[in-house]
């Protein structure tokens, strides 16, 4: 028999180790958060003073002080639009099919397994695929279109997964009510499922674009140039039909590539430019992610079925 004192000592000891473990957990969490804060502060201290209006309106230059990110941010913007046009319809359609239509058979199982696996495929292999397929087989060149398609395919699984989650949260009663009114499957999806899941889908779209905007490796692989001192063709022209899509086929650079280019030079002045670009990139991704988190929490609160 253990005496009461032994038991008390035993409890004390376990409480002590429990406390130590809790402290270790807190430390690891804080360490991760402090790393994030250090990164932001370190980058900002170097980069923020360099961010002036001129920085946004100048092309890259041999002189660090005169260089800017005009072609880079315009390029990023164009590539993002192309990515969104490619990935959103495809991803949402795939998500709707998998949740609302697909039957449990081997085809749907392969698709499901494949989507899980796509998350683990290194992003640079998407770049290699795009170089072989889009650039050389389909002769799209090292263009904004190629970049948009590449990043679109890269973020496709994110959009599919978030669309599915949003649709799955809609209770079956909604579907049954719609069918009871005589609506067809598509009418139910069009008028009920899609509107009710739009908040969740938006979250996925924002997260996927924030991922795409910082993605560098696949674009370097398709041969995006690092020194671009001109802008893509304007999308609006003065001759009918006034809108042209020539910009899709133009060469481009994007902000992360510009940052990489400046970072790989030995001179510290260029590193300052890299830091400034980094601050802008970081702020954009943090704002987009913050927005997605906010949207998700608001959506959850509002939807009380």
């Amino acid at each position: 028999m253990e005496s009461q004192q032994d038991i008390l000592a035993n409890i004390k000891r376990r409480q002590f180790w429990d406390f130590v473990f809790a402290l270790t957990g807190l430390m690891s969490l804080l360490f991760a958060l402090i790393t994030l804060i250090t990164l932001i502060v370190d980058l900002s201290l170097t980069g923020v003073p360099r961010i002036t209006l001129d920085f946004f309106t100048s092309f890259p230059s041999r002189f660090a002080g005169k260089a800017g990110i005009l072609s880079a941010w315009v390029g990023s913007f164009c590539v993002m639009i192309t990515t969104a046009f490619c990935a959103i319809p495809l991803g949402v359609a795939a998500g709707v099919y998998l949740e609302e239509y697909s039957k449990k058979n081997w085809v749907s199982q392969i698709i499901e397994l494949n989507i899980i696996n796509l998350a683990g495929i290194p992003s640079i292999t998407y770049g290699l695929m795009a170089l072989g397929l889009f650039v050389y087989q389909l002769k799209l060149g090292q263009s904004i279109l190629t970049a948009g398609l590449t990043l679109g395919l890269l973020v496709l699984p994110i959009i599919i997964v978030t669309t599915r989650e949003a649709i799955r949260a809609i209770p079956n009663a909604i579907r049954e009510a719609s069918y009871a009114m005589g609506a067809s499957k598509w009418q139910t999806i069009r008028h009920h499922i899609l509107p009710y899941s739009s908040g969740g889908i938006m979250t996925g779209v924002i997260i996927s674009l924030s991922r795409a905007i910082g993605e560098t490796a696949p674009l370097i692989t398709i041969g995006a140039l690092t020194f671009i001192a001109f802008l893509p063709t304007a999308p609006i022209s003065d001759v009918p039909p006034f809108i042209n899509l020539k910009w899709l086929m133009d060469p481009f650079t994007v902000m992360p590539i510009q940052m990489f280019n400046w970072l790989s030079r030995p001179q510290a002045e260029f590193h300052v430019n890299a830091a400034a670009t980094g601050v802008i990139l970081l702020m954009m991704t943090l704002i987009m992610n913050g927005g997605a988190i906010y949207l998700r929490s608001r959506f959850r609160k509002k939807m009380k079925w």
């Binding site: 790393t35 990164l39 910082g214 992360p256 590193h271 980094g278 990139l281 970081l282």
Partner: peptide, 12 residues
């Protein structure tokens, strides 16, 4: 958010 930071920024 740690996973959302662009990798090129991590390189810096």
């Amino acid at each position: 958010l740690l996973a959302a930071v662009p990798t090129v920024v991590y390189g810096y």
